[in-house]
């Protein structure tokens, strides 16, 4: 049992949990959470791929890729959340009418 195996399977499980959530979640905010879980799962896979048995240093390229992925994901999340806020505002003002 090495860390890469353990965390690799963890990552795949997290990705799958996110996938179920993204397909089934009713709540808009929770769907964003689920997608974020997927992205963490994908990050796990790349970080695990970079791991080398110590004392060898890990491959830094996937690390850079995951950092890029994290920034891309926060951008997408921000846009999705802005849409949610806008939509909720539009819907509740309609209810008042």
């Amino acid at each position: 049992m090495t860390p890469d195996l353990i965390y690799g399977l963890t990552g795949i499980a997290v990705f799958a949990i996110g996938l179920v959530g993204a397909l089934c979640a009713q709540d808009r905010l929770r769907r964003v959470l689920a997608l974020k879980l997927c992205s963490v799962g994908a990050g796990f896979l790349l970080v695990v791929g970079a791991w080398r048995t110590p004392p060898m240093a890990p491959d830094p390229v996937p690390h850079a890729l995951v950092i890029t992925g994290i920034v891309v994901m926060v951008s997408a999340t921000a846009v999705a959340l802005a849409l949610i806020r806008r939509l909720q505002t539009l819907e509740s003002s309609d209810d008042d009418d």
Binding site: G18, A22, R28, L35, C38, A76, A80, L87
Partner: peptide, 25 residues
């Protein structure tokens, strides 16, 4: 439009993440 945009956003993010997972493999 906003409702459609939100669905589009969910689909886009999920599509991109599936692609990213593929990149990982």
């Amino acid at each position: 439009a906003v409702r459609a945009g939100l669905d589009y956003m969910y689909a886009s993010i999920l599509g991109a993440l599936l692609f990213l997972m593929g990149v990982g493999f």
